[in-house]
Design a protein around this nucleic acid. Structure first.
Lengths: 115, 115
DNA sequence: TAGACAGATAGACATTAATCGATCTTAGAG
DNA sequence: CTCTAAGATCGATTAATGTCTATCTGTCTA
């Protein structure tokens, strides 16, 4: 699957958007270090079961949007800002461009195929 | 549903990404006007049936990413660049920010709950 | 008004995706 | 080595999604 589609699919879910928002602004941490998030933090924050969290994190990691670093028994997650930049760059093409002249009218439109 | 999630869901599909790309660069047109795209153009371009095109266009329009203008029997579609700008703005938060100091190590990590 | 055509809607079907309980794997503690 | 805990994987279930055929609605034309 195209990497852009994969990234967009990964982001097109309210749970996973909450996850990336949490990764940007960790609100609690069982891990005694600022800016570090482990899966258990998300489990508590989201109120979902551990397999479900694991499922969502796999999707985000496979999409390249989140990096996972295993330390002993824990896995620390962090945003991959470069991947977000790629998505923003791809979608940015659609926010600018020729300011289309919106003055089409049906007078210019013949039947298709002409029959 | 949150408008950002709705927009991302709308974009998280290869067919719909092809549609918005087509709207940006129309490659043919049964409508005799540059920069104008009607549903029949997409039907030919994508090789899908008319109801399927209609379905995808409804999703894109409902998400605000595409504007539909009905002219007689035809519907002309155009990108809503402002909506794309909103998505880009929202995702842009994740491509920049504190350059997290990635030096966490398990030595700082006690068992959860402390028992 | 009747026919033709663009597009929307309805219903059916197949595929994908989200979620959970149960289990497995792996790593630190004792 | 054994126990415990974090996280991954498996299997099942349910919900959401994409696609089609058939049909309906609205508009233009003769």
């Amino acid at each position: 699957m195209d990497s852009l589609v994969r990234a967009l699919k990964a982001l097109a879910d309210p749970i996973r958007l909450r996850i990336v928002e949490f990764l940007r602004h960790p609100q609690r941490s069982c891990c005694a270090r600022e800016g570090v998030v482990c899966a258990c933090d998300l489990e508590e924050y989201l109120g979902l079961t551990q397999p479900t969290i694991s499922h969502h994190m796999k999707i985000l990691v496979d999409a390249g949007l989140v990096q996972a670093a295993k330390h002993g028994r824990w896995v620390y997650y962090d945003l991959n800002r470069q991947a977000f930049a790629s998505v923003v760059g791809a979608l940015g093409h659609y926010q600018t461009g020729q300011l289309a002249t919106r003055q089409a009218d049906s007078a210019t439109h013949q039947d298709h195929g002409g029959l």
